[in-house]
């Protein structure tokens, strides 16, 4: 009898926490998104127009958010994979030092680091001068461009890409790579046929951990972007905190949530299929 109770005891605290601080607010927000009226005279009225208005007014911010987050995710993957590979296979006794370096930025708050980037990318900074010199800043400045926002997102979410990638690469038995080479695979072939497919779980986890928070991010766009770089997070923040348009903000949040879920489900179906495992899985 007692043994059957134990799992519930283990699940209990977390469940209560999530119900109080996630499920209940979610219902409250769902209700809020159907209110109508103005500040002081809000009332629940099944006002579905909040949703259609939200989509009509802010469709460009939605598209931009998904584009920025997607670009930052791809960029993170390209930066993180070689790094995680090097830490897992080549770092030797430097491994722990390098892993520490990956998480070291977390010791400073997200906000401070993003504000620091504002300075780094400001018009007079040496970094901007260099970017101008090599032709990467045709407009003459870097701050307040989509490039700056994507760079900021990439920087801020890079560790969430590196760590799962490292975990999956580190688990790969080097003898499997030796076996591939023994079976006539060049270094490139053994990477494509063995290492890459075996690190697929890390790629899926890393891209999700990067993409999902990046879509809803507003800090990077606020500090590094200009008026033309506002993401959906900035709209929600401004509607909720500045304009007190709670119903619209809630409706936008729900639309964002559903869109992210659709993208994630489609992505997982694709990534989980044999497509990522290479033709040999067939």
């Amino acid at each position: 009898m007692r043994r059957r109770i134990v799992p519930y005891f283990l699940l209990g605290p977390g469940t209560i926490w999530l119900v109080l601080f996630f499920v209940l607010p979610l219902f409250y927000m769902a209700e809020l998104s159907l209110w109508s009226g103005a500040v002081g005279s809000f009332e629940f009225s099944w006002h579905w127009a909040n949703y259609s208005e939200a989509l009509e007014l802010y469709d460009s911010q939605f598209v931009r958010s998904f584009f920025y987050a997607g670009a930052a995710t791809v960029l993170s993957l390209l930066l993180a994979y070689p790094l995680a590979y090097a830490i897992a296979f080549k770092a030797g006794r430097w491994r722990n030092v390098m892993l520490f370096a990956v998480i070291a930025p977390f010791f400073t708050t997200y906000l401070i680091r993003t504000i620091a980037w504002e300075t780094i990318l400001s018009d007079e900074s040496p970094v901007t001068e260099v970017l101008k010199a090599i032709g990467l800043a045709p407009s003459g400045h870097v701050l307040a461009t989509s490039g700056a926002v994507i760079a900021g997102l990439t920087y801020n979410y890079l560790p969430f890409m590196i760590l799962p990638l490292y975990a999956s690469l580190d688990r790969i038995d080097v003898r499997l790579i030796e076996a591939a080479k023994d079976l006539y695979s060049s270094a490139t072939q053994s990477f494509l046929r063995v290492t890459l497919p075996l690190s697929a779980p890390g790629i899926v986890a890393g891209t999700l951990l990067t993409f999902i928070p990046a879509v809803g991010d507003y800090v990077n766009a606020q500090f590094l972007g200009g008026v033309g770089n506002r993401m959906i997070g900035n709209v929600i923040q401004s509607l909720y905190l500045s304009q007190s348009d709670y119903p619209s903000a809630a409706a936008l949040s729900f639309v964002l949530m559903v869109l992210i879920m659709i993208v994630v489900v489609v992505y997982i179906r694709f990534a989980g299929s044999e497509a990522l495992m290479g033709e040999e899985a067939r």
């Binding site: 499997l176 080479k181 075996l198 040999e280």
Partner: peptide, 21 residues
């Protein structure tokens, strides 16, 4: 390099590719 040699190896722990049939 190993992939250019006319040898094949049976590894101690088999080293079978787990993602392949």
């Amino acid at each position: 390099p190993p992939h250019k040699r006319p040898t094949n190896t049976v590894f101690q722990s088999y080293a079978l590719f787990p993602h392949l049939s």
